[in-house]
């Protein structure tokens, strides 16, 4: 009698547990669908033909006649290939230049001793609080005055530095034990060689993380490129998408 009671309770608990698990999975799956659906829709719409899309009052969740015509149009009627090339040039150049700027700076803060270091670093940190919206107005004027509108330099220069990444890298550099530096010094290794041969290889994970984050940031940047370019030849992908959208609704090109 008692035994069966225990069994019942144990069974009930197991069932409740399983119900809870199922509930969790339902919840997670719902959000996953919410995240994936726009991507699916983007892909689906891109392979629907223009006329098929417009004739569907109730949008279909699949298409039986997929077409690649939209992709052909995107590259022929709109200079999408150029937008992509521009974005790739912009992203690679900005990221590479940023690395050249922030690695020595982080190294100086982490390893070298010089007068005013703490004061300077505090000033650097306080710059992190400055929102980019506050400085974009003057930068726009500066770039315009330098005649750099619609050039890659105008696009790249203001986004080359990042105080946050210098800070991140400096913290990482400081994790490297002092003994390594002293050993290198005893061997007569120069600071630059030490940086290139020891610090950068050790901190490779952080450097890769920073690179990826910067690439994402550049790839998605919209506001600054929009301010600084009005010539289609220098549009980035974001600007191109927005221009297609403003001039013709979504899938058709302006000329249609």
């Amino acid at each position: 009698m008692n035994n069966t009671d225990y069994q019942k309770i144990a069974l009930g608990a197991a069932r409740r547990e399983r119900a809870g698990k199922i509930g969790l999975y339902v919840f997670l799956t719902l959000w996953a669908l919410m995240v994936l659906f726009p991507f699916y829709w983007m892909l689906l719409t891109s392979v629907k033909s223009y006329s098929a899309y417009n004739s569907e009052y109730v949008p279909k969740f699949f298409t039986l006649a997929p077409t690649l015509q939209n992709y052909v149009d995107a590259f022929t009627l709109v200079p999408l290939a150029r937008y992509f090339t521009n974005t790739i040039i912009f992203t690679l150049a900005t990221t590479a230049m940023m690395m050249l700027v922030i690695v020595p700076a982080a190294f100086a803060f982490a390893r070298l001793e010089f007068r005013g270091k703490n004061l300077l670093f505090t000033l650097f940190l306080s710059l992190m609080m400055i929102p980019s919206e506050l400085v974009v107005i003057t930068n726009f004027q500066t770039i315009t005055n330098w005649g750099m509108r619609n050039t890659f330099w105008g696009l790249i220069l203001p986004s080359v530095t990042s105080v946050f990444y210098i800070y991140l890298l400096k913290e990482n550099f400081e994790q490297i034990p002092d003994e390594l530096y002293k050993a290198a010094k005893v061997d007569g290794t120069s600071d630059l060689k030490y940086l290139l041969r020891v610090m950068i290889p050790i901190c490779r994970p952080t450097l890769i993380t920073i690179t990826i984050l910067k690439i994402i940031e550049c790839w998605n940047s919209y506001v600054w490129p929009r301010l600084i370019t009005d010539n289609e030849n220098y549009f980035l992908v974001s600007n191109g998408i927005q221009a297609i959208r403003e001039n013709g609704f979504g899938w058709s090109s302006p000329s249609r």
Binding site: V101, P104, L112, N139, V160, T161, I166
Partner: peptide, 12 residues
């Protein structure tokens, strides 16, 4: 070592 960062931060 700090010069490039200082220049860019100073200007922009």
């Amino acid at each position: 070592y700090l010069l490039p960062a200082l220049l860019f931060l100073g200007f922009f």
